[in-house]
């Protein structure tokens, strides 16, 4: 990989890179969600709120389990082979640092001025 974001060489393996990244994001969100609901449950006293949160908690745990299983089956996540996971962690960190160092959006991105009227109104 090089720093030219238009070089087609950089599109090698991009789908798997994207999928692993988004799946990891999804997993962390599911985890965070379960923990947030658990904390909320310990702070709520109304029976109906508790019932609702408890259902969502169990649902969240089930979702977390599904994501984990999917990621393990796709070999995106290796909870049992830590050396594999280590390589994956280091590689995705390396790749993401490379993306972070690219100059992806060189132009001024402020498109604010074009949202104040419909195309017909442009004179």
């Amino acid at each position: 990989m090089n720093n030219d974001h238009l070089d087609p060489i950089n599109s090698l393996n991009v789908p798997e890179l994207a999928d692993t990244t988004f799946a990891m994001d999804f997993l962390l969100r599911a985890k965070e969600g379960v923990r947030n609901i658990a904390v909320a449950l310990t702070e709520s006293a109304s029976p109906d709120v508790r019932a609702l949160l408890r259902n969502q908690l169990l649902q969240g745990i089930a979702m977390h389990q599904e994501i984990t299983e999917l990621m393990v089956s796709k070999k995106w996540f290796h909870p049992y082979e830590l050396s594999e996971q280590y390589q994956l962690d280091q590689l995705s960190a390396k790749n993401t640092i490379m993306i972070g160092n690219m100059n992806l959006f060189p132009a001024d991105m402020n498109r604010k001025g074009i949202f104040d009227r419909t195309p017909d109104e442009h004179k």
């Binding site: 990891m24 994001d25 962690d89 995705s92 960190a93 993401t96 972070g100 992806l104």
Partner: peptide, 16 residues
């Protein structure tokens, strides 16, 4: 590390 990696990716791509 995974969390930080996601932070970099998100903060970079969201700029678009």
């Amino acid at each position: 590390i995974n969390f930080k990696t996601l932070c970099v990716a998100k903060s970079k791509l969201m700029q678009g």
